[in-house]
Simulated assay, not measured.
Amino acid sequence: MRKLLPILFLFIVVCFLSCTSKDKQVAENIKTYSNTWDGIINAGKLELINDTHFDERITLLMNPENIVGIKNVQDFYANYLTGFTNIEFTIVDIFGQGDKIVKHWNFKGTHSGDFFGIPATGKSVDIDGVTLVAMKNGKITQEQDFLDNMAFMQQLGVLSNPNNIATIDTLYKAFAAGDIPAVLASMDPKVVWHEAEGNAYADGNPYKGPEAVSNGVFARIGKDYDYFNLAQIQLYEMAGNQILATLRYQAKSKKNGTVIDAQVAHHWFLKNGKVIGFQQYVDTKQLAKAVNK
């Protein structure tokens, strides 16, 4: 038994040193990795993508085709540095095991330049993602990013929010129910509203803010008409978070009893699920007959 004790002690020492060595290597990998990407993205030092920090066969796992090699990886990330200003790249959390690293990151910036062929939109983005990393001999050898690309494109203004049609549909249903507070609640505090030129209500164009729309448009509709219905509503999704609505106004004037059945189009502009702009197109001749004594 006594002969086994030195062997057991040696075994424990070897295991301890081995674990300590592995922990130290993970810590060094994380430090190298974090400092490298902070310099590349936040400091704009694209030249840090070199054979000092990256394996010469660095591979970005992509679909449908991987990006391989230092020069190709440089070209890929150049799109971010030329496409965005006001960049803030933050590593929210990072940990590793062996030669593997997992990174949770956040990217903020203003789309002010060409980004993979997408012209500048001036939109701000704020996107989270996760990267799986493989290290080799202290260098970055493989990366695979996971992020919500649809949300990213929506923030750029390239794709529209899929909930926009539902937002406008809910707004029309609230108007039909006479729930004007709900209609106003769907609007951004800085909404800009335009009535059609030639419409009597266009005298306040542009109405800015929900209260102005309520007082300048909705209150006057209630005063001028016995009923004012929206019929045959059709909604069409457009690029850039815009919705086109075609419909008809069916109403009866309180002033002279005129009944109208007018063809109408509404052009809606949305951002983050709220209406930020509105443009009306309507047969203003019929509306003029209804409001004249």
Score class of each variant (00 low, 15 high):
K285F: 11
V264F: 05
I70M: 07
G83Y: 07
E237K: 12
D169H: 06
E65V: 13
H267T: 02
Y33L: 14
K252D: 02
L156V: 04
P189K: 08
V133T: 09
P119G: 04
N86M: 09
V13C: 10
Q242H: 10
S214G: 00
P210K: 08
T36A: 12
R57D: 15
F116I: 04
L159A: 10
F152C: 05
P162V: 11
I243F: 01
D23H: 10
E47Q: 14
K22A: 14
S124F: 02
V259I: 12
K271P: 01
N164P: 08
V275N: 10
Q279G: 01
N79K: 02
M187G: 04
E65I: 13
I165G: 04
I233G: 09
L247Y: 13
V158N: 06
I94A: 15
G98Q: 06
P181V: 03
A262N: 14
H194D: 01
T121Y: 07
A200I: 08
P64Q: 06
D75G: 04
C15A: 15
V259R: 03
P119A: 07
E65G: 01
D75W: 02
A196C: 06
D169R: 12
I49W: 03
L270F: 06
V158G: 04
I168T: 09
L10S: 15
L159N: 07
G277L: 09
I140D: 14
K71E: 14
K45M: 09
G83M: 07
K22P: 00
R57I: 00
Y207K: 07
K289G: 03
A290G: 10
I221A: 02
P6I: 15
K3P: 02
N106T: 10
A182M: 03
T131M: 14
M187D: 06
K100H: 15
A177W: 00
A43I: 00
L147H: 08
L132W: 09
P210I: 05
H267N: 06
F16R: 00
H53W: 03
Y227A: 06
Q142E: 15
P162N: 08
N106C: 08
N66I: 03
V26E: 11
A177L: 01
L147Y: 14
N50T: 12
L244R: 13
P6T: 14
Y33W: 11
Q97I: 12
H53E: 08
G96T: 05
I127W: 02
E65H: 09
K139A: 09
N163L: 06
N292G: 06
D93T: 02
T52R: 10
T85D: 12
P181N: 03
F54Y: 13
Y281G: 00
A182C: 05
Q279N: 09
K71W: 00
I118Y: 05
P210L: 05
N86P: 07
L10T: 15
L81I: 11
F115W: 14
A196G: 01
K139E: 13
E65W: 01
K108F: 05
G39S: 14
K108A: 09
N272Y: 09
G240I: 00
L156Q: 07
P119C: 06
D179Y: 02
A212E: 15
A245E: 11
A134C: 02
L60F: 13
G222I: 11
V191W: 12
I243Y: 05
I12P: 01
N163G: 13
A212C: 04
Q234H: 09
F116R: 03
G198I: 06
N66S: 05
A120Y: 05
A185V: 04
H104P: 03
F228I: 06
G204F: 08
R220I: 11
A120K: 12
Y80R: 01
D169I: 00
